[in-house]
Design a protein around this nucleic acid. Sequence first.
DNA 1: TTGAAAGCGCTAACAG
DNA 2: CTGTTAGCGCTTTCAA
Lengths: 331, 331
Amino acid sequence: MAVTLRDVARMAGVSVKTASNVVNGYSFVRPENRRRVEEALAATGYRPNIGARNLRRGRTGFIALVVPELGIPYFGELAGLVITAAREQGWNVLIEQTQATRDGERTVLEALGPHLIDAAVISPEALHAEDFAALDPGVPLVMIGEHSVDVRIDHVAIDNVLAARTAVGHLVEIGRRRIAAIGAHPYRGTAALRLAGYREALGEAGLPELVRPALHYHRQDGAAAMADLLDLPEPPDAVFCFNDLLAVGALRAIAERGLRVPQDIAVVGFDNTEEGAYSRPSLTSVAPDKVAIARTAIELIQRRIGEPSEEFVPEDVQTPFTLAIRESTAG
Amino acid sequence: MAVTLRDVARMAGVSVKTASNVVNGYSFVRPENRRRVEEALAATGYRPNIGARNLRRGRTGFIALVVPELGIPYFGELAGLVITAAREQGWNVLIEQTQATRDGERTVLEALGPHLIDAAVISPEALHAEDFAALDPGVPLVMIGEHSVDVRIDHVAIDNVLAARTAVGHLVEIGRRRIAAIGAHPYRGTAALRLAGYREALGEAGLPELVRPALHYHRQDGAAAMADLLDLPEPPDAVFCFNDLLAVGALRAIAERGLRVPQDIAVVGFDNTEEGAYSRPSLTSVAPDKVAIARTAIELIQRRIGEPSEEFVPEDVQTPFTLAIRESTAG
DNA sequence: TTGAAAGCGCTAACAG
DNA sequence: CTGTTAGCGCTTTCAA
């Protein structure tokens, strides 16, 4: 079996306490003893049993990352970065998928308890605010991306309104006059923010609105919405899609009608996934600083775990973004 | 604090043992007692402390999934499926990324011990066989995709040689005569298999080989290799790329020269990612049954953990695949 | 500075 | 059928 601290102590001729002290880097161990323990450590290849340590400390060393689905490029990329950021702080990451359903989110939140994790980073999709209130998992929570004003939880995201306004402003600047939006969503808070930004930009320019909903944010939903727009007597000359997947779908629908991007229709996406950078034409897209998002989420967790939760004031951190301009609007 | 089994037992007026029996679904509990324990369970909202249970059982309840990078579509999709399959069997999944480097793989394997996980599913990339031998993590391992003949580890993958032969055979069938391959790799076992399949198909048809290496399997590597091929005095009329990302890059390089797919050059990818299905033109691709891969990997783990490791005979499971034919070869 | 010993929450002998 | 009890491996008072 694996070697325990007791084995090490016995081999070094000291007590478990002393061995423990050395392992945990406490000072005040007599040099002689420290040396002997370190020798025993090396000789046995001792590895602390994390489970036991955590049982004792009342911690698990794990944080959960809750996302809709890893197969969605944006979440795959984000999850990778969160894992990396967490690793740097010594956390292990447990990933849970909700399949973007409210039930999925509820189930996951219910299953997650303080026994399993010390905190959770969650990217809610269809979850209503009241679910959070009802389902306190008993550990600190940090929300990524989504925004629910009435929920008192730490939150990190870009300024979605400003980002959307910037994207649509870019379309106005290149001379587009009939700019549609794809991705309105009845429950999703982010969709409301992006819609607001879209409206602000159009309002400033005195242009008409043309909004299409999307229940899911997959490629096929973008294609369907775009096809719908192209059937209009007066189709748009530009589209702002609420994420890159919708935009990729839109590109395909446009191509199937034999129209050209950006000459006939300019397209802007959101998330700046690698897929968009290599699509044909390559996709202009709102580019959130994903590394900053991941890092900030982990920092917030550290802070919450450090200080007891007395006098909780939720933080609302805004991370930077840019607009990556590519072929789909260049012209 | 959280309620413990002791609290439940006290409330029900029975011993911890009886309470434990009820929680763990043992039979042979007097109905009367069972009822009272169940009431106490419900009243207190008891949730077992997984850490403690595992400490006692000598298990952790976690399996690790080791992949190069979650941001790579294929691995994002696969990870999502593995998590789902693991969940169904009550496992929690810890994801580790190696960044596709040998050092990364070694580090991860070293860090993973029986204290943290009960088993690991790994998708090795650049790892040499000897690393496995040297770094026994002390838990059952299942390898996905990659193949190292000399390593005695459970393994699940499609028949890569046959798959590659099928893909290239398809190119031959549609009349291509100068078929290049992109993705040869000095360390990667899978690359050798796909290369072998490519050669078999060309040999059968009596066609010449035209191979380009790719150290990494990213979009930009595919674009670079393709550009290189297009610079040849006699460029190919078809390309077989060893994964979809390389193929997406190749599509872009071809487009930048003003050539058409599939008229001038037909393209086939590997992995059948969603991205490829929506690229322009959509990508013909070898389509492994990813669900089967994920499920099988978890099954193998269950089996290894069930039976003690005496007389270990590594399993080598082949999962099915198809060729998804799309626009990039239809013509 | 270090040892002895208690106990984190749970399961599993072992008696009854 | 059920209660008592001994740990899983670790950290941490409490004394010495």
